[in-house]
């Protein structure tokens, strides 16, 4: 796989949000406005890039048995740094993202890439992988927040749109609209790719990066049967 393909796979073929369906909580929660979505995307991308590089550099040092706690500590460290930086330089965005900024720690995309990619590949490849995935995540958030902000608030990045801003469908910026738009976007991606993206058998254990934690367990333990690890 060339470096360009490695980068592009995160954006289209293995888009973390719309194809792999990871990190759903921030995707649904912060996309009520475009600015918040972009802030979240950039913050997660920076954490992903740093953690992927650090984990890849340390992959021969970290003992296999305690690798998950090690990854979590590394990721939590980077998240704390980003939190402090955003608190200092972009206080409005810090307030708007609120708890979801801290929750980047448990974002499945980051731990998932650490486990699936960075622990097996060199630093350069891991950095490219992280950038691709981060950009894919950001673009997905951008697309979703564009739909939600235009329909729900009649504005785009704070610029109000003439007719729509007088007749907003405000349910779109609320919780049900998040689920609805996300469902429709995934359906659209399914339609466009005709299932040519990464074959996802189900969205139970296969997509859950925590599955390694119950890897030794009976397969039905996490809602998926007849599927070995």
């Amino acid at each position: 796989m060339t470096k360009l393909q490695n980068f592009l796979k995160g954006i289209i073929k293995e888009n973390p949000t719309l194809v792999l369906v990871l990190g759903t909580c921030p995707t649904l929660a912060v996309t009520s406005s475009v600015i918040n979505a972009l802030g979240m995307g950039v913050a997660a991308t920076v954490v992903l890039l740093c953690s992927n590089m650090a984990i890849s550099a340390l992959r021969k040092v970290i003992p296999d048995k305690v690798r998950i706690p090690c990854y979590i500590v590394l990721i939590a460290g980077f998240v704390t740094m980003i939190e402090m930086i955003m608190h200092a330089f972009t206080p409005d965005l810090y307030e708007a993202l609120g708890i979801f900024l801290s929750l980047i720690v448990v974002n499945c995309i980051i731990l998932g890439r650490a486990e699936m990619y960075a622990s097996k590949n060199n630093v350069i490849d891991s950095a490219i992988d992280a950038l691709g995935m981060g950009v894919g995540f950001t673009l997905a958030l951008f697309a979703m927040s564009t739909i939600r902000e235009i329909l729900g608030n009649g504005s785009w990045m704070g610029i109000s749109i003439p007719w729509l801003s007088e007749n907003p469908i405000s349910i779109m910026t609320l919780a049900p609209g998040g689920f609805f738009v996300f469902g429709c976007l995934i359906a659209l991606v399914n339609k466009l790719t005709h299932g040519k993206g990464v074959k996802k058998k189900d969205f139970g254990c296969d997509s859950c990066p925590s599955a390694y934690m119950c890897g030794k367990r009976p397969a039905q333990s996490c809602g998926k049967d007849g599927e070995d690890k």
Binding site: V21, A175, G178, F179, F180, F182, G183, I186, A187, L188
Partner: peptide
């Protein structure tokens, strides 16, 4: 519809459940 099978239709129904909690 074919494209909605699996996750998308689940999310759309989650939207309706969320709406009911309003």
């Amino acid at each position: 519809p074919e494209a909605f099978k699996g996750l998308p239709i689940t999310l759309v129904s989650a939207a309706i459940v969320a709406l009911s909690f309003f």
